[in-house]
Design a protein around this nucleic acid. Structure first.
Lengths: 191, 191, 191, 191
DNA sequence: GCTTAAACGAGACGGTACGTCACGTCTTCTA
DNA sequence: TAGAAGACGTGACGTACCGTCTCGTTTAAGC
């Protein structure tokens, strides 16, 4: 049992920093975001930040993808409908102002920092794949999804297509595109 | 017709710099790549580089994705076979040592620099979509591809899935993964 | 009263930089003196230097003309003797290796940077005119110096003549020249 | 006899460059004056300039102190009057807009470039000392100037005092200052 | 009138330093 | 020991100017 010694950390700093980070990411991109600016906006100091997160990237990752309660994948009754719902969730996750500003930068840092890589993956897979195993199992039993389709493949497709589309042609991601893409993925995994 | 005036640029510098950049990207990642180091390796100077490319990102983009001769999409006779071939090409394009090192960084800079965004897209779409229109048209006529599938959708799927897989779990991208993914995409666009 | 807050500056850096600057000025001229080299020699960094001095010129000025203890103008009993002593001091001040190397460059920067101009003048006048007012007063009372001679005029003459001679014909500044010039100045201010 | 071969130099370029240099020195200081800007203003090119002058400093030196006709030192009848006239001439030479802007810079370059040093001295001594030998000789014969006073000493005093005063307190160089200084110098050389 | 050779404009070149910026760490004082 | 403040080393950024070079073109003098 770890005994806490000395002055305890002020939990208000944690949230103030996360909020400040998300706010600032709504105003500038990842590269122009400085830790000094975050500290100032949060009314704290750089060392207090580095005591909590090992690097700017880790902080941003946590600010952009906060740990949230899982909500069950609602069953719409059809494969297409369920895929459409998963897409909507993934899309929502990736298109908050903070996520839009931070994602490219995080991707760059991921490639260099393996601890960030791991953290980012875990957080992501957690959120996106939650309930996916069960859903796939059920759909497979109904004969609607091929046996060899793996959860990771579905995430690759969902997240990969949305991510690439977001960074290359965000202006064309309308309802029609969502529909076409859902149809594409649903057929891709169908028996 | 633009008339050349003044001392012409030394074309050997262009190629030496591009080569040096690609070489260095085989040794370090994008962030650790300095323009000074490129200049030194290429036997030239920083100003000579900035005279040719507006930023490090533009230079890297050109070094990593050189303009190449287009080769026709070979028809294997089946949709699946053709998709598998397109995947192989896209995969090859994205997994040169230089591309692996540079891609995350380029994605980050793309988000900030719109001229780079445009340049990168043009280069990419050029290479990947070459012949795709015709191929889709033909496949559509044979009744193998749905009418609403667009070339851009195919590129999103191909490049998006491969890119995300590369930056998240490159170690699992074996032949089996390529096969499953080709199957997925082929079914996704099929009638 | 200013309260010090945050990490205090390391005073060893101040002195190491000043020493390094003076040393390097003994080896090269002002123009070839780079801030990078100073930082390296002093075992510190460029930002640490620019935190302390607003420009290379301000740093050099302080390194070349350090604030020193004032020593009284010793009275030799005669106007000529006292002038000769003042000349010797001015000459010593301007002919340290660092001063010889730096002075022309400082003069050039003075013309451009008004803050440097002010700083350089203050330092100079401080050192050269210290005790001069009293000396002139005394000499005037003895009837040896004309009433209208001002301290600034004496400094102009002393420093101006020595400076111009130094930059135009340093090789001829022997004892005889010093004697002739002291005689010239002593007569110039005499009643 | 050197035979001219090839296209002769365009003499209009010489004068256009000198004029442009003097003009620009009325607008900025020596350091901010670029050879590119001179070439542009003169409607010519950098190589044409470097064909004529070995460095920026040499060009500026010639632009600021053009070779002029010597005018005799007018005898005012008194030592003081003659010295006052010499001061006026020296002052005029050093206070053209171009000279004011260029002098500090030239002094700095002089210290580094020995060919410039020589050129600048020759030009200066030529102008200032012209007729001085004769004048001194005459004054000496009249018993008004001490035997050991040398022409170079007079130039040191005249130019040194004016130069230092110009770069340190130009705003106080009024008629009264000129009078006091002429008196000082006249007494300094008097028997 | 043709040849010759250098001057010309434009601008690229290598070199070198500039002053700035942000990162993540360290050091001080205070709570 | 946390916290605020801010200095620290590191290392790269993009810019500026120097004086030289390499082009293609123009200009005069000599044959």
């Amino acid at each position: 049992m770890m005994v806490e010694i000395g002055r305890p950390r002020d939990p208000r700093i944690d949230s103030a920093v996360l909020e400040a980070t998300a706010e600032l990411l709504g105003e500038t991109d990842y590269a122009s975001l400085s830790v000094d600016a975050i500290a100032k906006r949060a009314g704290t100091s750089k060392p207090a930040i580095y005591r909590r997160w090992p690097s700017k990237a880790h902080l941003v990752h946590e600010a952009v993808f906060p740990v949230t309660e899982y909500t069950e994948l609602p069953s719409t009754g059809s494969t297409l409908g369920d895929v459409r719902e998963m897409m909507a969730r993934t899309f929502a996750l990736l298109t908050t102002p903070a996520a839009l500003a931070a994602l490219p930068g995080l991707v760059a840092e991921m490639a260099v920092d393996s601890t960030l890589h791991a953290a980012l993956l875990e957080r992501f897979v957690d959120v996106l794949s939650h309930g996916l195993d069960d859903w796939l199992e059920t759909a497979r039993k109904r004969g609607e999804v091929r046996a060899e389709v793996r959860p990771a493949d579905v995430i690759d497709a969902l997240a990969g297509i949305i991510f690439l589309a977001l960074i290359t042609h965000p202006e064309t991601l309308d309802e029609a595109w969502m529909d076409r893409t859902a149809e594409f993925i649903a057929r891709g995994i169908s028996a």
